[in-house]
Amino acid sequence: MSEKSWKEVPIGGLIVEPGNSKNYKTGSWRSFKPVWYEDRCIQCLACWNSCPEPSIFVVEGKVTGIDYDFCKGCGICAEVCPEKAHAIEMEPEF
């Protein structure tokens, strides 16, 4: 989302377009990012089930990747990923 001047935004910090949080990309808040390794993934969907955002892409019942526009790097997905699979690892963003 491009940043607007004080003359362009609604007064009082009001949100007048409902559902516009999808335009507000919070991925930049992240200091660690989850990296998904497809070859190790057993498709248990524990990450998808636990992601609070949700930022796990699922197509036809299968994990296909991570939505970095909104993932804040909380690390829950890596935590719940079964130890034997170890398909998601947290790596430093910077």
């Binding site: 940043e3 001047s5 935004v9 009082g12 910090g13 009001l14 007048v16």
Partner: peptide, 25 residues
């Protein structure tokens, strides 16, 4: 018909702009 949110979080990116609007008003 025109739903709106009052009192949403307003951080480093826009709080300042909203204070400038109050100054203008």
């Amino acid at each position: 018909d025109k739903p709106s949110t009052y009192g949403a979080l307003d951080l480093q990116d826009y709080y300042f702009e909203h204070k400038r609007q109050q100054f203008e008003a």
